[in-house]
Design a protein around this nucleic acid. Structure first.
Length: 263
DNA sequence: ATCTATTCCTGGCTGC
DNA sequence: TGCAGCCAGGAATAGA
């Protein structure tokens, strides 16, 4: 599942193909993925030139000379350059130099055109990568609830998903159900440090390929080899040797060490 | 304000 | 080998 490091890797691998290039034509085939109308979206971007490729959290924006093409990969979305279209290909954006393709078996992702940034997007939290500590602390402390729920909430902070939250909480020795009111300033400092460390390392490793995640050239990442708790229920904890436990928190499978991460 | 449950969807897995 | 049933989950949404 694409989270911040995977989305960053996709952006880095697709940008060189797209910057400054002009869209010759486009076609969209999934009303679920492309909600603004299939024909209308294709017409809106035809002839436009890509001025910038940006990421905020898990959101990708292709800034055009007029409006923007927005992409969210959801669970199984892929942006591919010059790939073979398959049965889950929902969009083709053609350039003189090649074709940008969007594939997504589950269709939880989006590929839509916007004239301007939607209001709801402007209220998203700051990007988890590079957010300063005071902003991180302030945004966490402005809410109540369990730490895992808040870290997953894109209005609080943008970019974290289930894998990196579990890894981050383990690295910081924080129980996923800890109420945020009980997180000390020092513990928050540790969470912030570990978050930067883990995200940077995961980007270096080109993301985690758990099921079928790949970048724009079809290359998988290998950060999954460095996962310490995610997907490791029943296996020994790398720190204490006790069994990693799997529970449900915020409707998500949650992996943690009951001994290292005390409630 | 914050919680939980539900919805979207299909590949992959289990068990017969 | 086939197939039914279940599960995974990002984010929007509804209801408590």
């Amino acid at each position: 599942m694409p989270e911040l490091p995977e989305v960053e890797t996709v952006v880095r691998s697709i940008s060189p193909h797209l910057l400054g290039r002009t869209i010759v034509r486009a076609s969209f085939s999934s009303p679920l993925v492309t909600r603004g109308g299939l024909e209308k979206t294709a017409e809106s971007i035809a002839g436009a030139t890509i001025r910038a490729v940006r990421r905020r959290g898990k959101q990708i924006f292709f800034d055009l000379d007029r409006g923007m093409l927005y992409v969210h990969l959801g669970m199984t979305g892929k942006l591919l350059w010059d790939a073979e279209p398959g049965k889950h290909t929902h969009a083709l954006v053609e350039f003189a130099e090649g074709t940008l393709q969007y594939d997504d078996p589950r269709q939880f992702g989006r590929m839509e055109f916007f004239d301007a940034l939607p209001e709801a997007f402007e209220r998203r939290g700051p990007d988890a990568l590079g957010v300063d500590f005071e902003t991180f602390l302030t945004r966490l402390k402005a809410r109540r609830g369990r730490i895992k729920t808040l870290l997953l909430n894109q209005s609080v902070l943008s970019g974290l998903g289930n894998i990196y939250v579990d890894e981050l909480l383990f690295a910081s020795r924080v129980h996923p159900r800890t109420p945020v009111s009980r997180i000390s300033r020092d513990r928050a400092r540790l969470l912030h440090e570990k978050m930067q460390e883990i995200l940077k390392l995961a980007i270096e490793r080109r993301g985690s390929s758990i099921s079928d995640y790949v970048d724009a050239s079809g290359t998988p990442g290998d950060f999954q080899q460095l996962h310490r708790v995610y997907g490791k229920a029943g296996e020994p904890c790398p720190e204490c040797g006790g069994a990693i436990r799997r529970v449900v928190v915020a409707q998500r499978g949650t992996h943690y060490c009951p001994r290292c991460q005390r409630a």
